[in-house]
Simulated assay, not measured.
Amino acid sequence: MNLKQTLLTFLENNLFLKNGTCPICGKVLFVTDRFLCHQCEDDLPIINNPTCIRCGRPIFDADRHVCIPCAKLNLPFSGGYAYLNYKDSGKKLVHAIKFNDRPHLGIWVGTQMGVDMARFPWVNGVDLIIPVPLHSNRQSERGYNQSEKIAQGIREGLSQNNHRAPELATDILIRSRDTPHQIGQGREERLCNLTGAFNVEHIETIQNKTILLVDDVLTTGATLAETSLTLLEAGAAQVFIATLCAVAE
């Protein structure tokens, strides 16, 4: 650990809260209710081009409404939303939430997502918000589930301006098998790893319900497809998805 990082770690642990430094550029934050510096917040790669109506992935052809993966693979989502492009500071933000012990950063960015998502008509029909679960082994190592923190923030964001906030349910979708990290794997490998990895408990709770499924990143869609199918086969009526970041098609 170099001298600069040692000093920043000391400041975080002794003088500031866990959001004592900007997770993207490392600048010290002196306002304790901020989680990014002004510059990095302004530079976030927010998705503002046309998006796939099914998964929320950015697309670059205004004449199409569904991305190539959703059209080709008939992914089971009824609709979707993604906040950031998975590049540059978007990647750094995800990494900080997952690996740098910053659960409150996940809640904060989820709140921004929830406020923005309130403009979509389909949000009004959501009954339950369910985060994609971690296996108990991985959650024990990390100390929290980053998708659950993002989902918590989404609920808080939706509750603003008197918007109806669906219930957050964290005990329904269970990851029963500890799958390896999927970074660098193609969709076929991911699907193979994930088949049968999830179970539903309290099945009666999701019967004929519309569910918002929350994850940190949409890449191939394999994880969200497998979890969505698990919920639909258990009796859910529809599954919509929300992700912090999405890879463009």
Rank of each mutant, 00 (worst) to 15 (best):
L218Y: 09
A234D: 07
T219D: 06
K87N: 15
H65N: 11
L36K: 03
N208A: 13
G186F: 08
I59T: 06
K98G: 04
G80Q: 08
L11P: 12
C37A: 04
A246V: 08
H104I: 02
A169L: 09
C25Y: 05
A71P: 02
A234F: 07
V214C: 09
L194D: 04
I53T: 15
L224G: 02
I129D: 01
T179H: 10
G26E: 00
T9P: 01
K72Y: 05
L105W: 00
T9W: 10
S176N: 10
V214T: 07
P58L: 06
T21S: 11
K209P: 11
C52N: 09
I47F: 04
W108S: 09
C40D: 04
Q39F: 02
F30S: 15
P180V: 15
L173K: 02
D216M: 09
C67V: 01
D33I: 09
V123C: 09
N208K: 13
R57V: 08
Q185P: 00
S140T: 14
N124K: 13
K209H: 13
L224Q: 03
G90Q: 14
R142E: 13
P23W: 03
P23E: 01
A118R: 13
R187H: 03
A242N: 08
Q160W: 02
C22A: 06
C22M: 04
L84F: 14
E12A: 01
V28D: 00
L158N: 11
R177T: 09
N13G: 04
R177G: 10
G196W: 14
T227D: 13
A82L: 13
Q160D: 01
Q238P: 03
E233V: 06
R102Y: 02
L3R: 05
R102A: 08
R142P: 01
T210K: 15
